[in-house]
Amino acid sequence: MNFFSFSRAASVADALRDAGAGAKFVAGGTTLVDLMKLDVETPAVVIDINRLPLAEVGPAPEGGLRIGALARNSDVAHHPAVVRDYPVLAEALLSGASAQLRNMATTGGNLVQRTRCVYFRDTASACNKRVPGSGCAAIGGYNRNLAIVGTSEHCIASHPSDQNVALTALEATVQITGARGDRSVPIGEFYLLPGDTPERETVLEPGEMITSVTLPPPAPGARSTYLKLRDRASYEFALASAAVVATVTNGTLERVRIAMGGIGTKPWRNRDAELALEGKRVSAERFAAAAQIILSGVKPQPGNAFKVELGKRCLVHALKLVTAEA
């Protein structure tokens, strides 16, 4: 039996004291408990952080919005400030999982959500992310919903979250605390490529905790959309998704932020694609060119090669939606 110690932290300091190598914080539990049942996650220490005062959503001191790590996905999606100033985040959250899961899942938990690669979830299969050095069964196996960019020969697992794609387009910052103090990491630097260490997915060190996410003040006049493409109409991870936040003035794109989900090993952003659009007139050709840039360097598998075209259409359509005359 996988025995583990379980404690309920009364304060952040409490939680950090007990946390170390082999420890996991549990909040909504929608990923961790699921994976513990499958023996994929086998933490020695589980620390319940649900009682910590980290669920607040409110103005950030430096402007913008701070979302506590324990704010539930449902609460964030329906929060008036999010709906008003960051609708792309609300849309992304509501496109994910099911209402029941969103009621449990938290902002911080969603940031470190694990992949849905079927081999990662199956302890009988080789998986470098689960057991470093064991190999990657997804390469040459069933990989229809896995990544086409950011992959390595060791791992092609796709990043599963919708929230994190929107947060990437919004240029969020992740606040982290740990034994060595507090730090803030821009979300663009928070996720790691699998390389030859696919077991490491973020810059979080053992024992560190996410306390909040801050969003910069909304760009004046910005419009946004989250477009998610998948087989069925709900309750499915993205085959391709795009979060676009853009400001358009008289038919010219002023400021553009793009992040894509479903296609990459992390929320996928390429500043060059945004630069190819900024200062340019709205045009379908430019959208296609931007998609080409984002999808440059793809390494598709036989089972997911269609995502190259799907991803392109996803982004082009999202850009059309955002720039369409009201």
């Binding site: 081999y119 009988a124 299969s125 069964a137 040459g140």
Partner: peptide
């Protein structure tokens, strides 16, 4: 799975 023969998408997601 063509190598192991496992019905690999064996869950409701």
């Amino acid at each position: 799975d063509p190598r192991s023969g496992a019905p690999i998408n064996s869950n409701l997601a």
